[in-house]
């Protein structure tokens, strides 16, 4: 069970200051909730309850409204993702070109379910909707890096590569 932690005093103060400054700079802060949340996710990597609560306080709106928005949009993570998030495109173009197999291979190799994080906190795997590179279907992304024409073998190579990066190679 996750306990609901609303205490934002434990959060990194410089990040909170950044978020506050961003909110202060907005002409219509309340209307810009989605932008504020994008900013928060960029800063913290995800948007846990205490960050949501902080956003609500600073914008002077209800926490329920913030949570309603966070949970509505799939782009926002409420759970901490892995150090590397491997995203497999499950848009139509990628699907008909075999994205499902690539996704299954990743999950199998990492021994996790979709959306979960590996025990070492290194990887999480999720499916995303078309990133607009359908010409290269199936497509896998890690951060900003896009891998086109992905295969099951490539999926394994990607895992090795990011594991390797961590070992300082």
């Amino acid at each position: 069970m996750t306990t609901i932690d609303l205490d934002y005093s434990t959060l990194d103060q410089t990040k909170l200051d950044d978020l506050t400054a961003y909110i202060d700079s907005l002409e219509h802060p309340e209307e810009s909730l989605i932008h504020v949340l994008h900013r928060a996710q960029k800063l913290f990597g995800y948007i846990p309850y205490n960050v949501q609560f902080f956003v609500a306080k600073t914008l002077k709106i209800g926490a329920a409204r913030v949570n309603g928005v966070v949970s509505f949009y799939s782009f926002f993570n409420e759970q901490k993702p892995g150090k590397y998030t491997i995203s497999v495109c499950m848009g139509t173009a990628c699907y008909v070109r075999g994205a499902e197999k690539v996704l299954q291979k990743l999950l199998e190799k990492l021994e996790i379910n979709k959306g979960d994080v590996t025990e070492d906190g290194l990887f999480s795997v999720k499916d995303v909707r078309c990133i607009g590179a359908c010409g290269l279907a199936p497509v896998v992304t890690v951060g900003e890096k896009v891998y086109g024409h992905a295969t099951e073998d490539m999926a394994l190579d990607i895992i090795d590569k990011y594991r390797g990066d961590l070992d300082g190679n």
């Binding site: 209307e31 909730l33 989605i34 949340l37 994008h38 928005v69 509505f72 949009y73 799939s74």
Partner: peptide, 25 residues
Amino acid sequence: LKLGAGAFVCGEETALINSLQGLRG
């Protein structure tokens, strides 16, 4: 510029407008 956040229904114009106002789409 206003960003979406990964909801297909926000392509529908009334949902889009709600999203633009910082609400659920």
